[in-house]
Design a protein around this nucleic acid. Structure first.
Lengths: 249, 249
DNA sequence: CAAAGCCCGTACGTTTCCGTACGGAAATAA
DNA sequence: TTATTTCCGTACGGAAACGTACGGGCTTTG
């Protein structure tokens, strides 16, 4: 009991700037950071943990530090596809930045990890108080928007292998290791293709020495080779993110 | 000559609120409208007229009144696909709303018409001065973002006929007539499919009595039938737009 | 340690759409 | 009017991915 209290107080302690691994939080000015810090709560983010539910109010914004969030658009007939991923470079809760309180899409941890979160109310209050905070958040939202546009492009024009390679690269950018702990089934759901199709494509990658696979996990071996497979379907959102964030520190 | 001067001065006259047909401008408060009005210039928007060039600064924002803008994502290898359309419900120049001065995507008039425009500088200056203007613009940007997400969904999961039906409905929403003046070639480019594929699909629509076609033009006859073809791939961005705009007037 | 569940490998027939191409009809330019 | 260009109709073989399904190996649970 006393141990648990100890851990809890450690987690809940107001983070100092040096503690924080989320790239967005890293880019905040000292005063903007001070605005958010008191409300930030360290959280562990288990795989499949739901972060946003379509058409429901957003309760918290999550600043991911490790792991990956999938943002998945869903329609009435339950067709679904991933429209973007969020990792340590960003945050969930984009609609709040636009002044909307509701989530349009489903969002959940695709790869588990941890991060910081704060309530939507606290986030909005901080946004109200700082122009520079708003400026950063809007750039972050724009970066996400560019990612979604290029997902639309890849979905419409790229082949399964190209899309899969693109996804692996985007995940790899957001992870600290070369291992991607995911089943073929979940990759298939995100890309909106058959599970069997993913299996075959991953085999092809493996035969070419690009990845290694085992049950529930794959490991990138030759990133440059995977980039070659993805071709120009990968890269633009990534360079645009850099550009948009360049003005902040 | 004197006639031309006469026309020009008519066009350049500061518009009154009642003149304006663009739905976004319609939703402005009197004071916000007064902020923009002096800078608005009436323009004719010819088909194929370029509105934004990827990676170039945005020179003007366009408030469309008739016609349709296509926003097309392009990558290095020249793969391209439409990621959204803009009509009288919106405006071009979304990145400006986020504080970015550059266009990511190509944007051009897919269907000619007319509208009002103002320089990016004037728009930014007005945005700086009014919270309520910013609020409206951000909601408009969000609506566009939702449209892009559902384009990604349709591109990944829908069949050609479903996507084509969706596109026709989105165009129809933005036009004042049932006629869509477009060649199969351009529909194909927007959807990222073969021209021949569009031709065959349109024939199927025609045989079912959903549309009538002639060279360079098609006419919607049975909108409900087309909605049935599009299924749930059409509709969500449209209801979300209504919701987001509901708070303004 | 056995049972159950999950995950992966593989297969087969089928659908969808592609690449390409050719000719004719309609519109536009000369 | 004639020539030229644009646009549409149609065709064919082939690639990509689908739906479905079955069995076997790995992991977790009881």
């Amino acid at each position: 009991m006393s141990i648990e209290v100890g851990l809890k107080s450690m987690n809940d302690a107001m983070p100092s700037r040096a503690d924080v691994r989320n790239r967005l939080l890293n880019k905040l000015s000292a005063s903007d950071f001070a605005l958010l810090a008191p409300h930030l709560e360290m959280v562990s983010l288990k795989e499949r943990q739901v972060v946003e539910v379509p058409n429901k109010p957003i309760t918290h914004v999550y600043f991911v530090e490790t792991g990956v969030v999938s943002v998945v658009a869903v329609n009435v007939e339950d067709h679904r596809i991933e429209v973007g991923v969020i990792g340590k470079e960003g945050m969930s809760g984009v609609p709040l930045i636009f002044g909307d309180d509701r989530a349009q899409h489903s969002a959940y941890m695709q790869i588990g990890g941890n991060g910081r979160r704060m309530t939507a109310a606290a986030f909005l209050e901080a946004m109200k108080q700082s122009v520079t905070l708003r400026a950063l958040m809007m750039k972050s939202a724009q970066a996400f928007m560019i990612q979604t546009a290029h997902t639309a492009l890849a979905n419409g024009r790229a082949k399964l292998e190209e899309r899969l390679a693109r996804w692996l690269l985007m995940a790899h950018d957001r992870l600290d290791s070369d291992a991607v702990p995911l089943t073929h089934e979940f990759l298939a759901v995100m890309l909106g293709v058959r599970r069997a199709g993913v299996t075959v494509a991953l085999h092809s990658f493996e035969r070419r020495g690009l990845i290694a696979t085992r049950r529930g996990q794959l490991t990138l071996i030759n990133r440059a080779g995977i980039e070659q497979v993805a071709g120009s379907f990968y890269g633009i959102p990534e360079t645009e993110l850099k550009r948009l964030m360049a003005e902040f520190i």
